[in-house]
Design a protein around this nucleic acid. Sequence first.
RNA 1: CGGGAUGUAGCUCAGCUUGGGAGAGCACCUGCUUUGGGAGCAGGGGGUCGCAGGUUCAAAUCCUGUCAUCCCGACCA
Length: 577
Amino acid sequence: MRASQLFAPTLKETPAEAEVISHQLLLRAGFIRKAAAGIYTFLPLGWRVLKKIENIVREEMDRAGAQELVLPILQPAEVWQESGRWELYGEEMFRLKDRHGRSFCLGPTHEEIITALVRNEVNSYKQLPLLLYQIQNKYRDERRPRFGLLRGREFIMKDLYSFDRDEAGLEESYWKMYTAYSNVFRRCGLKFRAVEADTGAIGGNFSHEFMVLADTGEARVVFCPSCDYAANVEIAQSVPQPLHTPDEQLPLKKVSTPGKRTVEEVCAYLGVVPQRLIKTLLYEADGQLVAALVRGDRELNEIKLQNALGCQKLKLAEPEQIRKIFGVSVGYVGPVGLEGIPIYADLEIPYLVNAVAGANADDYHWVNVNPGRDFLPANVVDLREVRVGEPCPRCGHPLEGCRGIEVGQIFKLGTKYSEALRATYVDEKGKERPIVMGCYGIGISRTMAAAVEQHHDEKGIIWPVSIAPYQVVVIPVSVKDPLLREEAERLYKELEAEGVEAVLDDRDERAGVKFVEADLIGYPLRLTLGNRTLSQGTVDWKWRKNQEEEAVPREGLGRRVKEAIQKSLEELNAPGT
RNA sequence: CGGGAUGUAGCUCAGCUUGGGAGAGCACCUGCUUUGGGAGCAGGGGGUCGCAGGUUCAAAUCCUGUCAUCCCGACCA
């Protein structure tokens, strides 16, 4: 490609609307343009990157035995009504009607439509297992699209669905995908980590997320440097840490704590450490009130609570509501004598001796509260948010933390959708069984943005060679000089003949402009031809990711570049790097 | 959906407080010079000031409404 022909409009200044670095750089370097909030046009450079990522994904899915197909974006309401998600999905689904008034949606995901397909076409155990996938647009009417490509309303996704005879088959498909996903992100040149994850609204009971590690990531992850434990903090666990308080149980006593509502205020007033407090939070779970207890120095993890309750909607109860029902302000609620609602206590609560808790009366707390004696926590479950430094639940080594961008997630679905949509097969014994399913997604456009978040510097993008829009840029410092121009032209043709993806910057621009744009766009390798080097029979060779530039012989350069690109691609291809 | 902010040329923004000429830099076009890190000089084109009402002799500027965009939160495979 000649830079003079390339449609890659660059911007000198950062558009005001872009906050995150990937958004800024992709706009500035001419990879994308915004059409509406969360909706983007992919310009030629951006589209080339997407296709590179797609092809890596495609190769790895095919290698895992999957088959590519294309499902409709425009989907009839019926299948969604069958699964019950027409109602559940809510506002996030783009809905529309045809001229006859029939309801449709733009597919936010494709479990329904593919399950409906498979139930008609798969009848026998002989047809299983089956792995089917597609790469296409998804539509979700996000309440707040943001961060450029990282959270759009229209985005490109690879979604794969596995269909197995039984749990054992699903297990095999799941780990096949785990391996395939690891291969994909490694080959894309990304530092990533697979972490245990919440299954959320999609259902199912087992899941991993693939996180591209970046400080700007929204997701927080904890991992163990000693064993292989790694999890999203949404579900991460650690060993409960009992207090070393071998005190004898003292008699329960009500004390006045006027105006002291928060943990800090109560601790300061009573002269106790926050670890000795029982924090009581009242939640409304699908309309029903529940109490959740964690230690005063801990944070409650709402996802854990929601999973423990098995509810759809969970929110903190309103202070007015609490006052109406219990006649007490939020700061003075406590588990002792709290009648009529279920109590969920964190694993650390039963270890407490002579704790402090709200007395369910304004301006009073109980001291010497002893779980088991003074109240019965009916449900003791893991509720607290894990913190870095706590012991790994597997091996006890202190956990470390990092941030990540979720680029993929794999789920064991089980029979949730096959039962709802009656997708069954007949086994060897002639018995009808529900197909056991899994689903597996990769955000293709998000991966592109995540790559930029992870690989950039103050000058611009630094594409990993495997997903760069072009591998090499050839820069003649002046095209007015016929010798330079011809030599650059020759080198460009040589590279093309070797199958190297090259851009020749044949524009009549100053060298500085070409360098700055090359750095911004992020070509992995830059070859510069100037008068100095020309007379010496060399070319200046510089990797985008390195600082140093070196003069290399012009002779045989095409082949040398080919080999160097090949070598870096192979390094990414090799497992275990 | 709650809170905050912003809409003026392709991009970044000034002008608005205190109403009267639509501006700057970059980008674009022409010419000359320049050519190893976003050049210089000269000339030129380009904007219903988001949109709709209102106040006024007069509105980018004041008022009301509305739409869009961004940020925080809530939400979120």
